Amino acid sequence: MVRILVYEPLSAGDAATVESLGRGSAAHLDMLDAGLAMRNAVAGDLVRIPGIQVSLATGEQEAGHAIHGSRALTPRPGEGAPEFLRSQAPLHDFCWVVAPETGGLLLRLHAAVGAQRWIGCSAAAIRIAASKKATCAALDAAGIATPLAFSGDSWIVKPDDGAGTLQTRRYATRAAAEEDLQARLQAGRSALLQPFVAGEPLSIAIVVGPVLARPVAFNRQRLETDGDGWLHDLGVQPAALDPAGPRAAQLQALAERVAAALPGLRGYVGVDVVWNERKGPVVIEVNPRVTCAYAGLSAILQRNLAVDILAAHGCKPGRQLAGHAAT
């Protein structure tokens, strides 16, 4: 029996993560909804795999309740995410953490779990992907189109380590964008200015193994810009593009090139892309973790993606791994 802990900080009631978003704020509630959807999709896939025992981290409101087939674990009052994971990781063979890179959170949780039990990307890959600036530089050096290839008719200011469209704003002039950028930096906030890339927002869901990166779905993202220039994420349509359609070959090749350009990507990885009329697929960012597109994807594909992701980490359901026995 392989024991796997599934952890998502907001649904587990991690106070530091909640307070960083503003308890009860729109950002907190939106991220909580997204986190629950991803957490439940991951746990729901895992419980359907023979030979897997799933522990699900739950907050006080869910205490004692878990997805059918899993067992609930609730952190002690005041126990933060790293502390909880440090205490629970040795009791499990693997930990699958659903969390954003923002503020170094995903990297800290990786350190708490340890590389041996971590389902996901390496610390080095997370560190690069957590910075949109560093990601674009690495991809650009590999000859992959990013916003760096554009001169800009309009401009985007956003957190360098942000998730989704959180605090992302579009400006008609570079001067206005520069003013916003400097205000954020002077306030000690992570910020980045990039040319706006026009086109259709898409994403690629990839499963990356030791030697192979395989796109499993091409998704359509729904984004909206309000009257003040703020971008809003209206959701994702998983597997919206035909895998045999006219753009599939380019997107598949792009996924493989991204994985080669960022060593250490492993398991499920999401690549946000804009399909530009002139340049084709342009990579905006790389998410070294489960994204919102994961929710419902196994049902659409009629294949349990968790099986593929575990296999990418050398875990074959039904047998215990040497070197991964929980203590």
Rank of each mutant, 00 (worst) to 15 (best):
G162N: 02
R117N: 02
D228Y: 15
A142T: 07
Y268I: 00
R257M: 06
L262G: 01
S131T: 07
L231P: 11
R39K: 07
K279G: 05
A142D: 11
L234Q: 14
A175P: 04
V258G: 12
A183E: 15
A134K: 11
G78T: 09
P288T: 12
L107N: 02
V2I: 09
A112H: 05
H65E: 10
A213Y: 05
A81P: 10
R303Y: 01
C136T: 12
F218Q: 03
G104W: 02
D242H: 00
L21Y: 08
P281E: 03
G143M: 13
M38D: 00
S122M: 11
L105P: 00
A325V: 10
W155R: 01
A72R: 03
N276S: 13
R48D: 12
G164I: 04
L21W: 03
L10A: 10
A81K: 04
R266D: 01
R71M: 09
A239G: 04
W118F: 09
R303I: 07
D228S: 15
S203V: 08
L21F: 13
P210V: 15
G51N: 13
G78K: 00
Q116Y: 10
S298M: 06
S20V: 12
G318T: 00
S87L: 09
P201H: 07
E200A: 14
P75E: 02
Q252M: 08
T135F: 02
A213P: 10
V98G: 09
P243N: 04
L297I: 11
P9M: 06
F218N: 09
G318N: 04
T135V: 05
E178Q: 15
T102F: 07
R39S: 05
Y7S: 12
L36H: 06
A123C: 11
V216D: 01
A322H: 10
L223G: 00
A261E: 00
A27F: 03
V282K: 06
A137W: 06
L139G: 07
P238F: 01
T17L: 11
E256M: 08
L193P: 07
V211L: 04
A37G: 11
V197E: 01
E285R: 00
L73W: 09
E200Y: 08
A213T: 03
S122R: 00
R222K: 14
A261R: 08
V258H: 08
I309H: 01
